[in-house]
């Protein structure tokens, strides 16, 4: 049963990832990504990481995906939204991706790491302790980063800073 559910979720993940990779429509790609992200959150639950799973949904679905959808909607005019995500150079990309995948599988097979049987554990409290004890410095740095981010994003999108450049006129043939 568990394996079955796992396989379903894994299949959904792979399906979402493949949609992201191969869809010609940017909005479908984004939806594929959304599917993959939610499914990965499900995988996290298999790995006893419910807090991370919830974080994943909160941040990716509630934040990043909304932002990406905003971005798509703001930058895609009219009808071409379904076909403005062209795929080019598929052959070399496939080649490189295949090489990378084979390499990864090779590494997984030859890693020689020892693994233990994992078990479900309540994690929230312990993650809090880790964050505020061992990883307090990166934690604070992330907060600084986010402040910088807020300010930076705000400054970047201020109207008066944006210089609207005239679209280059197509030159008529010289007579």
């Amino acid at each position: 049963m568990k394996d079955g559910i796992f396989l379903c979720i894994a299949a959904v993940t792979v399906f979402g990832a493949l949609v992201t990779a191969f869809s010609r429509s940017i909005i479908n790609a984004a939806l594929g990504l959304l599917l993959a992200l939610v499914a990965i959150a499900g995988l996290y639950i298999f790995l006893s990481a419910d807090f991370v799973a919830v974080s994943q949904i909160l941040i990716y679905v509630g934040g990043v995906m909304v932002l990406l959808l905003f971005g798509i909607m703001l930058t895609s005019g009219g009808d071409n939204i379904f076909s403005n995500n062209p795929i080019m150079g598929a052959v070399p990309a496939t080649l490189i991706t295949t090489i990378f995948g084979l390499l990864g599988i090779y590494v997984v097979n030859t890693s020689g790491l020892t693994f233990y049987q994992g078990a479900y554990r309540a994690t929230t409290r312990d993650i809090g302790h880790f964050l505020l004890r061992e990883y307090i410095l990166p934690f604070e740095l992330v907060s600084v980063l986010i402040v910088v981010l807020i300010v930076g994003a705000g400054v970047m999108l201020r109207k008066e800073l944006v210089i609207v450049r005239q679209a280059p006129q197509k030159k008529e043939g010289k007579k």
Partner: peptide, 8 residues
Amino acid sequence: IIFCAGIF
């Protein structure tokens, strides 16, 4: 697999 999809 996910990573390769991402690279692609």
